[in-house]
Amino acid sequence: MNNKRKTVILVFLAGAVIALGIACFLLLRMLPSRSGLELENNATVGIMPGIDREQRLKELQNELDKGLIAFSINSSPLFDSKTQEGNLMLENPANNAKLLVAQVVLNEGQKTLYTSKAIQPGSYLERIKLEQPLAEGVYEATVYIQAYDEQTQDLIGQTGAAVTLTVQNQ
């Protein structure tokens, strides 16, 4: 009888100790740690953008260099007054890796005289026909050249060339 009673007491005590240990463990986990710092989960690893000037300069330079375009153009194309055809001679060099679209705009009045389709790298537009006819004379115009990404066909940017158009009877 005494042995049975002792066994019951021992089992009860063991269970109590185990329960107390579990309770302490759970309680300690809930309390803030006094010996270490809790790590922030919302932080992004790496250098914050805008802080490293040299890195930022490299990024800007890379973006600008991607937008550089090379082209050649006749600075004074001659157009036939009857056919309205002339020698624009616009070249998109092979090393451009961009599609070019040309738009000829009259300086006076900003009238668009001609818009090309996309010119592939390594090709040129020798002669064009004005979509808006001009009478005989000499005109100042600007050829706006828009550059498009060859793969995505997204617009990269625009540059231009000032030209003098001469329309005469040939």
Partner: peptide, 11 residues
């Protein structure tokens, strides 16, 4: 004809 040939930024 006088051909102008340049490399310029578009952006």
């Amino acid at each position: 004809p006088t051909i102008i040939s340049v490399v310029m930024p578009s952006y």
